[in-house]
Design a protein around this nucleic acid. Structure first.
Lengths: 317, 317
DNA sequence: TCACTTGTCGATCAAATGATCGGACAATAC
DNA sequence: GTATTGTCCGATCATTTGATCGACAAGTGA
């Protein structure tokens, strides 16, 4: 589809003129030889395709303070706090995505070969979407969480896919569901050579960017049918408040050993202790889960928002 | 001025909501508790203070082709070509600034201590303005060109100043005019201990970001009264087409030895051969000067625009 | 060959944005 | 205490932007 490439080209040109040059759409129209609505469409395309990257480059005092306090208390290498948007909480994870992408870029930019691993979830996905294109074929990207749904369908647009596409790096996908159907199924999977090959790469990763899951009626594990209602109730009864990579934990960050845990196929958290584990999550609902992950000492880095940051510091003081 | 800081804070917040969150100014207004025109002013402030950084993240095919050809022909490590804006050529150097800042960021981002040197000129200045704030107190920044005007006044807002302010790094300013009043004055300067201290640092720089000067009636050397009309005529008579750091050169890139050269106080280009010399310049008028610099083999990197790139390739084929 | 689908383009209008202007409030001088 | 000056704020209007809709052209199948 060469036609599409050409269109993207012109979209990029329009974006330069509009966002960097500050020209009006009329001026751009006459310069590119299209109508004004044409420019409109080009700019919309440019944004949609993620050609336009905006970053706000100022440490907001409140956020800085929160990030410093959290970083100190939990011994993090870094903690980014993005401002909260009390309007629609829905698109709030866009902010996390942009801030997370900035951190991710720091790793990828390095020219020395690098192995990075990725968790699953909307926020992680949005982060790689927000990432700049950067040619780094020497890097390797590996998923920590199975990208196969329970019905056997593989998610073509996994975060790893997007990341590898954007950098030209190698991709390693975990051929498994997050939670296996049974203990036997999990055992069978762990025995597979391919499965082992991927987890071996994951263990060599330098850093891991993961999401944080809440454990309640809206838990992603439950919503995506990885666990059923009975299992969810079991987790809640055992005081689970959140999960990392599918591993449920109490509010103190201890991983809960139960019937579900024995079917989780993702890498045991213990094995990731040496890695830079970076979590991306925010919002009032996820705050208890984030706090649990911090208390457990699992994380080395955190990207969150004001709401969650405030909750965490309030709960700790 | 704590008041101003607070205002910037809110401006940053407004910018997040507007540019990353995509909210309308009305929504932002009600969220921040100010009137709509208030938000308007905040956003204007944010842009003016350079809080908002936009980057277009797509290789425009034409530009890519040009950059590749130039890079190959002149053995550059890299060559960036930004799209041209046939509208107002005046603000066109904004594009160069953004592209240059991206390159500069690559260096500064490194955490290992680094010494970088900077030339003078509007484009270089605009580049550091466009740079993101990044805390790197371990770096050193040094000017390759005197920042003292002929009347003795020092330019408070030298590029080095802005760069050091943004990173927290050390600054080394060359206490001299670009061109000394006389040969004796130059000799006296070279003898100064302070002058030597600065140039010693400059020689250790890893990379240098410099502008390219044209030599004609609009030559910056002439416009800023570093040389008078007679001297300009002398240079033109000797076939000078451009200059790097004040060193005039022919269209083949040979530095011209003349009465003016003997008064130039900046570092001899020969001494910078080992460094990553990166030039930032574009436009039809500067094109011959850029070509000369390339032919002389002085540059390792170039950030230019389509117009100049086309001129260069046409002249060489 | 004709009708129908599909996709693209431009006219038009509503919404959002940027800019100007006048007024209010505070600080300072008289 | 009053006047003056400067600054900040919000109402208003012109411009710019985003979205919808209808028209037209190209391609497709009958």
């Amino acid at each position: 589809m060469d036609k599409f490439e050409q269109r993207l080209d012109q979209a990029a040109r329009a974006a330069w003129l509009s966002y960097v040059g500050g020209r009006t759409q009329d001026e751009i129209a006459s310069q590119l030889g299209v109508s004004r609505p044409g420019v409109q469409r080009l700019l919309a395309l440019a944004r949609q395709e993620g050609l336009v990257k905006v970053r706000i480059d100022h440490p907001i005092a409140t956020c800085m303070m929160l990030s410093q306090q959290i970083g100190e208390r939990f011994g993090l290498d870094f903690c980014d706090v993005v401002p909260v948007d009390t309007g629609t909480a829905d698109s709030s994870y866009q902010y996390l995505a942009v801030a997370g992408a900035e951190r991710l870029e720091r790793y990828i930019e390095r020219s020395a070969p690098l192995t990075l691993s990725l968790g699953s979830g909307r926020t992680v996905r949005a982060m790689v979407e927000a990432l700049s294109r950067l040619d780094r074929p020497q890097h390797r990207f590996v998923s920590l969480v199975g990208n196969v749904a329970r019905d056997g369908s593989s998610n073509r647009y996994d975060g790893i896919m997007v990341l590898a596409d954007k950098t030209g790096g190698e991709r390693f996908l975990l051929p498994a569901p997050v939670v296996a159907g049974s203990v036997e199924e999990k055992e069978a999977m762990l025995g597979q050579r391919l499965f082992h090959a991927v987890t071996d790469v994951a263990l060599k990763a330098e850093a891991a960017f993961i999401g944080v899951g809440r454990i309640d009626r809206q838990a992603p594990l439950f919503q995506d049918h990885f666990i059923n209602e009975g299992e969810l109730d079991e987790l809640l009864a055992m005081q689970a408040v959140g999960e990392l990579l599918g591993w449920p934990m109490t509010q103190d960050g201890d991983v809960i050993d139960c019937s579900i845990t024995r079917r989780v196929t993702s890498l045991p958290l213990e094995l990731l202790r040496d890695q830079q584990l970076v979590a991306l999550a925010g919002g009032r609902e996820k705050a208890p889960a984030i706090l649990a992950a911090l208390r457990g000492g699992w994380l080395k880095g955190l990207v969150t928002d004001e709401t969650a940051a405030r909750f965490i510091l309030d709960a700790e003081s």
